[in-house]
């Protein structure tokens, strides 16, 4: 597969996963605007912004306490996270970049995938926050569904070649980083709150883990159990461990890259990230630090994958 094409589908996978993730966070959070307390609403916004490593438009301390203002500001914040072109992680920016990568790599994906994604793009292209604000959860839900559909269509129609692998590798690496960032945002902010359980139930919903948690632990929300489930449960698709394993599996399925050294390093990093969660997590005294190490490892993995398959030096590359 052409290296630039591999890079394109890899980024397509990453951007669409990000668009889905932010949409899903917003879908749940705008639902909370209806009946949650101001404290909870503010906590939710702060968590999202911290997870995205971004400050709200006027800085973190800008969020007011009055309820009416909170709702008005929610509009501004939702706009910043949804349609703001200058926010590289807004839903629109991620979807647009994912679609642009798909447009450039249309010959690497199926026609059905392209149509599905292009329709989602066209639907969103002419919208503004004011257009969706009457029922924002419906808009975010539809965006999530469209990206789910895209993934499902890819599953049903895409040839299981290198393009498929690189797309899934991108999605897996992005999922690890998004999940780790969100968990760290929750734990870091949670320490400052009086209510120790604040935000943990919504963390379960954000990771599609509410039902699994209830089945495993009952209805009482305990942060440590939630953390265990989200980080280390191999059966939860959105857990950090599942995503790290998915990345390692995709990498295993891709033939050795031209830069053998970088290739081996990438495989080691994927294995190491998995081992940290699998073996170090149960006994780790500082789990936040462990998650930070997993995050660094995944970021290194991203760079190493590109070194191995895309940006390799041509001197020692095999000729075919």
């Amino acid at each position: 597969m052409l290296s630039r094409s591999a890079q394109g589908v890899y980024w397509m996978g990453r951007y669409l996963t990000r668009a889905h993730h932010v949409s899903h966070l917003l879908e749940l959070h705008v639902q909370a605007l209806v009946d949650r307390s101001v404290e909870e609403i503010h906590f939710g916004w702060r968590r999202i912004y911290r997870a995205m490593k971004r400050l709200p438009p006027a800085g973190e301390e800008w969020l007011p306490e009055a309820e009416e203002l909170a709702l008005a500001d929610s509009f501004t914040l939702a706009d910043d996270l949804t349609f703001e072109r200058s926010n590289p992680d807004s839903v629109w920016s991620s979807l647009e970049r994912g679609r642009e990568n798909a447009r450039q790599m249309r010959h690497c994906i199926s026609a059905e995938m392209w149509s599905c994604l292009n329709l989602a793009y066209l639907r969103m292209r002419d919208l503004e926050t004011v257009d969706i604000w009457r029922t924002p959860e419906a808009f975010y839900g539809q965006t999530c569904n469209e990206i789910h559909n895209f993934v499902g269509i890819a599953d049903a129609t895409m040839y299981r070649g290198a393009a498929w692998r690189f797309m899934r590798l991108g999605r897996a690496i992005e999922r690890v980083q998004l999940a780790v960032s969100l968990i760290l945002a929750q734990t870091e902010l949670g320490r400052r709150m009086k209510r120790r359980t604040l935000g943990w139930a919504s963390m379960l919903r954000m990771h599609h883990a509410s039902e699994a948690y209830s089945r495993l632990y009952g209805i009482e929300i305990r942060p440590s159990r939630v953390l265990d489930l989200l980080a280390s449960d191999p059966l939860l698709p959105a857990s950090v461990l599942s995503s790290v394993r998915a990345a390692a599996a995709e990498l295993d399925a891709i033939a050795t890259g031209p830069d053998a050294e970088a290739d081996a390093a990438a495989r080691r990093l994927a294995g190491r990230a998995g081992a940290m969660i699998l073996y170090d997590w149960p006994e780790a005294r500082d789990r936040e630090e462990l998650l930070r190490r997993v995050d660094r490892c995944t970021r290194d993995l991203h760079g190493t994958v590109l070194d191995a398959f895309v940006d390799y030096g041509i001197q020692d590359a095999p000729l075919r």
Partner: peptide
């Protein structure tokens, strides 16, 4: 066919190659 840009191709010893994920392909 592969859809290539100039940056994807290089000439080595009079032959044209494209950069692929498995190395240089003629």
């Amino acid at each position: 066919a592969e859809l290539v840009e100039g940056q994807d191709l290089l000439v080595n010893d009079g032959f044209v190659y494209m950069r692929t994920t498995a190395g240089l392909r003629r």
